[in-house]
Structures are given as C-alpha cells and as structure tokens.
C-alpha cells in the first residue's frame, strides 16, 4: 500500500519537503514504518525519538496501519 507521511519541524528538512510517500506491505505496523523510514532517511534514526500519529492519534510501535490512514511524523523541538 502507498502511504503519505506528513513531516513536522525538522522532519520537513530531512524529507526535503512537507511530506514523503512510500510503499509498505498490507497490515504493516508502526514499527515497520519506522524501520522503512529510517532506512530511507538515516537522520531519523539519529533523532532517537519522534512521534508517529495515525489519523491524529499518537501511535505505538505495534499499531497496524491501514492504507487511507493519515500519517504524521513529529520530531521534538526545543525552542523557547
């Protein structure tokens, strides 16, 4: 299934744009999405923590992704 991942903060810079698209097998979970993203964007792995949300819900590694899900990737920011 084809997925579109929206980037926030530094993720836009890492993606080189506001979103990125990738193919992932049916019934994949969030952990495999992370692995695939980190393979394509090694900087994400360096980030160590980033939040993945499915349809505006904070997702844990075992959560299953469905094709029309809206996926957001929100890295930490620290400015004040």
């Amino acid at each position: 299934m084809k997925l579109k991942i929206l980037g926030f903060g530094i993720a836009k810079e890492i993606f080189g744009g506001p979103f990125v698209e990738l193919e992932l097998g049916k019934n994949s979970d969030v952990a495999s999405l992370r692995a695939r993203l980190e393979e394509r964007f090694p900087k994400l792995k360096e980030l160590s923590s980033y939040l993945i949300a499915l349809n505006n819900e904070f997702a844990l590694p075992g959560d299953i992704i469905n094709a029309p899900d809206e996926i957001a990737l929100i890295p930490p920011v620290s400015g004040g």
Partner: peptide
C-alpha cells in the same frame, strides 16, 4: 512522546 533526546546539534534551537 519522546523517551530520549536527539543528539546535540540535530534539532536546532
């Protein structure tokens, strides 16, 4: 949300 921090310099202040 963020159990551990990014390495220094990766996310700019």
């Amino acid at each position: 949300l963020y159990p551990t921090p990014p390495p220094p310099g990766l996310v700019p202040s």
